[in-house]
Design a protein around this nucleic acid. Structure first.
Lengths: 105, 105
DNA sequence: GCGATTGTTTGACAAGCATCAAACAGATGC
DNA sequence: GCATCTGTTTGATGCTTGTCAAACAATCGC
């Protein structure tokens, strides 16, 4: 059982504005909100139900990973994505909460 | 003494992703951090010290205003810009704090 | 009125980005 | 081995964006 990680930036190199750019897109923001349940999620298209091509979804996952928001673990032919919650909360206190919290209409 | 407001969106129409897009730029993020002192600030170039043309700065101010982040009041020939702090805090609790807070390196 | 000040608007340009489609790559299972 | 499955990569396309430069607009002070 092989298991490897995709390259992702050190959190020490991640700037707030990188996170913001990564998250300033409707689809990517929604992905983060789903990942905020703390569980690892499959990248499989059917799990997400966005109306975009699978290569587009792959592009968004890459943007999140390279922006320092997520980690990707490969196990066999499935990829699992996770929010870097603990690191993000430490470096950018309150940010993820603010992104996930339902505000008043 | 004339004093008028520039058009800005109703906060009820502002989406989180609009705020994020507005703030996902180094210059605009820095502007927000300065405005977070709660005081109105002049738009005058010298107040900010960014190394961009004044028309570029004007463009950034516009992006912030249209994104729902700031309000602009015109008095004579000077424009004053303010963070819509109370409204933003109500609709997106903790967000501005997270943008302004200094995180660990 | 006239020049100076403050800031916006318009136009042009290069770079970046969201998207789809097709090709590719590795792992699984028969 | 071979078809299938999961996901990435590459290429193309159109849209958005950050930037500068120049023109414009409104106000102030003399």
């Amino acid at each position: 059982m092989t298991s490897a990680e995709y390259p992702a930036p050190e959190m020490s190199e991640v700037q707030l504005v990188d996170i913001l750019r990564a998250v300033a897109d409707p689809i990517r923001l929604e992905i983060v909100r789903v990942l905020a349940d703390g569980e690892p999620h499959s990248k499989h298209e059917d799990e997400w139900g966005f109306d975009v091509h699978k290569s587009t979804l792959s592009h968004h996952f890459k943007a999140l990973r390279e922006g320092g928001v997520t980690l990707t673990t490969v196990s066999g032919r499935t990829h699992v994505i996770q929010l870097r919650r603990r690191e993000l909360d430490k470096k950018f206190p309150g940010l993820i909460d603010a992104l996930v919290t339902e505000g008043p209409s």
